[in-house]
Every structure is written in C-alpha cells, then in structure tokens.
Design a protein around this nucleic acid. Structure first.
Lengths: 122, 122
DNA sequence: TAATTACTTAACCATTAAGTTGACTAATTA
DNA sequence: TAATTAGTCAACTTAATGGTTAAGTAATTA
C-alpha cells in the first residue's frame, strides 16, 4: 500500500504542480541538458530556472552531475513510481468499486453490464 | 500525448501535494462522507477542512452533492487519469530509453542483459 | 418560533513561493 | 593574467498557502 502521509509525495506532487517544472521534465525526456540549456526557451531569469531545478532535484525527479562548471541534468524517473503508485491506489480502488457494482447487479439478476475504457488487470 | 502546459494538471498535482488532502481522498476511497465526517480525525478546524475540500473539488478530484444542509462528498477518479497519464508519459519514455540501451548493447555484441523491476508492456 | 446543526465566508496572520536583480565562485578561454 | 562563461546565492517584492476565529446562512429539530 501507499504511504499516504509520506513527505516524499509532498515534494513530488508539489514539484509536478508547476508548468515550468513539467516543461523542464519534458525537455529532459528528450535527453540530458545543462542548466543554461534548460533555461533557454523560458523568458524568466537563469536564477529562477536554477531554483526550479533545485525543487525537481529535491523531489528526486532530476539528477545533476557536475562536469567542471557545467551541470549536466537528467531525468530520474524512480521517484515517479511513488506518485504513480499513489494515484493508482485511488483509481484501483475505484475500479474495484465498479467491479463490486457489476457483481451486485449480476447477483440481483439485472442486465449484465460491460464497463468500458478501464483496465481490468486485477 | 499529455498536455504539459495544462492548468488542469496544475490544480491536480497541487491538490495532491498536501498530506491532509491525500488523507481526505484516502478516506473517501472507503466510501462517501460529509464535510464534518471528513473533518473528524483531523485536529484542525472545520473551516480549514472546508477549504481543503474546495481545493479537491476545484481539481475535480472530489464531487459534492448537497442534501439539505449536509454535503455528501465522494471521490471523482476521472481527474486522476490525467495525472496518471502525465506521469506515465515520463516513465514510459524512460522505459523506451532502457529498451534502446538494451538493443544497443545487443547490436554491439555485448552480453545480453535483462532489466528487472520494470514493466515491458509496449 | 427558537435553538441547534452543518457548513461557508470573511478577515486576518505567519509562512512559503515565484520571480527579480546584483554580487559571488569557480572553471574555461583568450 | 584577464575576461568570459556557467551557475549559485542572497536580498528583496509580491502573491499565494494554510491555518485561525468569528460571523453568516440555510436546514433541521425541539
């Protein structure tokens, strides 16, 4: 089960709640980049991007490797697994509810229903 | 593909970034509840919980049904799908990278590797 | 009708966030 | 060595967050 209290999740979801930071992650999905490289497309200052990167780093979503004066940033998807698990905890429960409801209807002798657009990998 | 700029995601991830709000969602996973019922286990004021509920509602994670003076709250997992998709956009890309790397090693005639703890449902 | 219950809203406070600019450090290049 | 480059850090402003209490509203109960 997911630890609902985890402050790791606080940092994670908080980091993901900003569009600039999601854009940075998106860019890192295309490959590694430097701080300046990541700052490129944005109109805000380098210092601002530097702060965003630190937040992503703290959330364990980004890894930094110092090569001389250049900081090579890469995405670190490990932390995303926690977020995914947390979200799936809620959606999975909902899927179970739907299954229960379908079973209930069946027991009641009502029309058999088919629920679409939903994973059934229990 | 996921819209990285979406302000819907801002609201969603922001709503999920607070432990109190995640606890409320967790409780709603066990069934519907009133505002007062949700506030019960917390030491903070009802007004504070009321605010949290409004944030969850705005993020489309919670649905409210007014029955007289009672507000019946239920979890609305639809919005979670967006968050899940967004996260899977990143993790999936990472999985592809690993696959590419594995293929690269194979092409190079190196030892065949097996990557564990990872979904391979491409 | 009066009191209570279930909530929301408003006003407030302390803390944090996101951005700025300017000064700083350390690595590289001329 | 001097200048430039890559990035951080500190100080500051403005706005938003998360909590409080007190007052207000509408539904229910006595």
């Amino acid at each position: 089960m997911v630890d609902i209290q985890s402050s790791e999740l606080d940092l994670l979801f908080y980091a993901l709640s900003d569009p600039t930071r999601r854009q940075i992650l998106s860019k890192l999905n295309e490959g590694v980049s430097t701080v300046g490289g990541l700052a490129g497309p944005f109109r805000m200052s380098l210092a601002a991007i530097s702060k965003h990167i630190k937040i992503l780093e703290k959330a364990n979503l980004l890894h930094r490797k110092k090569l001389g004066r250049i900081h090579e940033c890469s995405i670190n998807p490990g932390a995303l697994k926690s977020a995914e698990a947390c979200i799936q905890f809620y959606t999975q429960f909902w899927n179970e509810k739907l299954d229960d409801f379908a079973e209930h209807l069946e027991r009641e002798g009502k029309t058999k229903i088919e629920i679409k657009n939903r994973k059934r990998n229990r």
